[in-house]
Design a protein around this nucleic acid. Structure first.
Length: 562
RNA sequence: GCCCCAGUAGCUCAACUGGACAGAGCAUCGGACUUCUAAUCCGAGGGCUGCAGGUUCAAGUCCUGCCUGGGGUACCA
């Protein structure tokens, strides 16, 4: 666990303001929140705060004058090398370079915990993601979902939250039947029967394949039994197999779940009925046209929870998704007691966000505990060409095909090179291209290069675990590399706070670039300078650890050679 | 019609949720391998942040209106 330098700088500045007030260099006013940022320009130091720009009214002084008085009263701090007043009234803080050098040892001591922080202080967070309908293979959109959810979960873990990953299986309602009907038709056809395909059935070839396999394994068993029962049984069997496949494919993407939660259990346990009653008693339910509507002052329109028998004959198929969500959100926040439930949804579901939050509020829960991350769509490309996809016609590229074609590393990395708010083009050609256009290999190459140095050093008789004098790490490129490594905990904090997993891919690239610059400037293994070699080997090990940590959070492998 | 997301360098995108001269990568042009991996590095050019107003000491970021692209708007999931 590391205390963020950002926070240390903030309290350092705060001390300066307080001491200036005690010395009556500044008038009394309540201590403000100290916003600390990393300046874009290196000339502006390692950290900066514009806080004095906001204090002009409180202090009745010009911002630069305030900043000067704060700086005059700053205490001493070992990590601070210099403080300047700059521009309109910024306070710029530069880290002490010998302190920076010493952090190399600190990083190495952190081991696999380096970069972990205690933002979450043990709060329990559930991240529910993918949750694709179990009626077909995982597609590209769900792949983005998987990567965002998984890396966000990892980042939250590193930030000190207790995280559980959950896949919500939509196995209630009409999908089972619809899928069963499609499967039944293909099954019968596979056995030579002249069975018509349902009008709104699943057209994909995978249904044909699965039906053929079932026909081979089960023979004519389900043609001879009661038809609705056969459809039901085949539907359940099919969903089971789709889920097995999804689990395997996601595992190949290195995404695994703590819980596969079945929607059906929300009804079997009677929870749905109990909560409907609760909502009814509290005035959130109206019934009209035979349907049960959820009505809330927070919504512009009522939403159906249970459809009318005139529209849907089967009682089991009447509750809508939102109906299930009533029970599900209660299950998450009350029965299982998560402090917070994060949902990862595609942009095509954004319209449901206010409804789920309104449901939570109507149940008496704090809607802020329900957090929904909306990510934009993925366009699959081959070079400049769009890959045409039609889910209805069953034509789409599956996660399995993407893994077979490009492998998990590029999929994971490239899908996290955009904010969740931006639509993303995923170029299958670029993903496998091992060139400077592909940032995955850029970062992995840096790691392989580091390992190569360590191998070479060992060959030359250096003990890789030898301790060196890190105070020798004074070169500009050595310092820049350490400073970049020291950013990791803050990147984790930011990615966790802002739910911005893409931060990690940007950071990994910056760190790799900083390492390559160091490599250019500084020879590591040099017989004639044993002390410096030992110090630099420590630095290289720390760099390896930091890069591996960033890649580890991304779920991307850190190869020892390429 | 209404709701959500985006519009930033030739292209693809960042920008620490209001802070300093708006940054990367790719592409283009010019350089660097008898040295621990050239899948690398160095340098150069490239901008009215879609448009028009407004708020603020300070706006790519906030508010209003428009334009363009994508998504949504069912007793679908």
């Amino acid at each position: 666990m590391t205390e963020l330098i950002r926070d240390q700088v903030a309290s350092f500045i705060q001390d300066g303001i307080r001491l200036a007030q005690e010395a009556e260099a500044l008038p009394p006013f309540p201590l403000p929140h100290i916003g600390v940022e990393r300046p874009r320009q290196v000339a502006h130091g390692d950290y900066a705060t514009p806080v004095c720009l906001q204090l002009t009214e409180d202090a009745r002084m010009a911002p630069r004058a305030i900043a000067t008085r704060v700086v005059d009263h700053l205490p001493t701090a070992t990590f601070v090398g210099g403080v300047d007043v700059a521009g309109p009234g910024y306070i710029n803080v530069t880290l002490d370079s010998s302190w920076v050098a010493r952090q190399t040892r600190h990083i190495l001591e952190g081991g696999h915990k380096w970069g972990h922080i205690n933002l979450g202080s043990g709060n329990r967070v559930q991240v529910e993601f993918v949750s694709a309908n179990p009626t077909g293979p995982i597609t590209v959109g769900s792949t983005r979902n998987a990567v965002i959810g998984d890396v966000l979960a990892s980042v939250l873990e590193a930030a000190g939250f207790l995280v559980e990953r959950e896949y919500y299986v939509n196995d209630a309602g009409s999908q089972v039947r619809k899928f069963g009907e499609s499967l039944y038709a293909r099954y019968a056809q596979a056995l030579g029967e002249d069975e018509p395909f349902p009008a709104d059935g699943y057209l994909g070839g995978y249904v044909v394949d699965m039906a053929a396999e079932l026909a081979r394994q089960l023979g004519r068993k389900y043609l001879e039994s009661d038809r609705p029962e056969a459809i039901q049984a085949l539907g359940e069997l099919g969903i089971e197999r789709v889920l097995d496949q999804a689990e395997a494919d996601l595992a190949a993407l290195r995404v695994t779940f703590d819980t596969w939660f079945h929607e059906r259990t929300l009804y079997e346990s009677g929870l749905f009925d109990r909560l409907l009653q609760r909502l009814r008693e509290n005035g959130f339910i109206t019934e009209r046209e035979g349907a049960v509507w959820f009505t809330s002052p927070d919504l512009e329109e009522d939403a159906v929870l249970v459809r009318s028998p005139q529209v849907i004959p089967d009682p089991a198929e009447r509750p809508t998704y939102l109906g299930s969500d009533v029970a599900y959100v209660w299950n998450k926040l009350v029965e299982r007691g998560f402090d917070r439930a994060i949902y990862v949804w595609g942009a095509d579901h954004h319209g449901d966000v206010p409804r789920v939050r309104a449901v939570a509020k109507a149940l008496g829960l704090d809607p802020d505990r329900v957090e929904i991350i909306i990510y934009q769509m993925v366009n699959l490309k081959r070079g400049a060409q769009d890959v045409r996809m039609s889910k209805r016609a069953g034509e789409f590229v599956t996660l399995r095909e993407m893994i077979d074609e490009v492998g998990p590393d590029p999929i994971r990395f490239l899908l996290l090179t955009r904010t969740v708010d931006a639509t993303i083009d995923f170029d299958l050609d670029l993903a496998v291209e091992q060139s400077e256009k592909n940032p995955v290999y850029y970062v992995q190459y840096a790691h392989a290069r580091i390992c190569s140095i360590l191998r070479y050093a060992a060959e030359q008789g250096w003990d890789p675990d030898d301790e060196g004098d890190v105070s020798l790490l004074t070169h500009e490129s050595e310092q820049a590399l350490i400073r970049k490594m020291l950013e990791l905990p803050e990147i984790v904090a930011h990615a966790a706070e802002q739910r911005a997993p893409h931060r990690l891919t940007f950071y990994a690239q910056e760190l790799a670039a900083q390492f390559h610059a160091f490599y250019r400037d500084c020879r590591v293994v040099a017989e004639e300078d044993a002390e410096r070699t030992r110090a630099r080997l420590m630095l290289v090990r720390a760099a390896r650890m930091t890069l591996a940590q960033a890649l580890g959070l991304l779920g991307v492998t850190a190869p020892e050679q390429m």
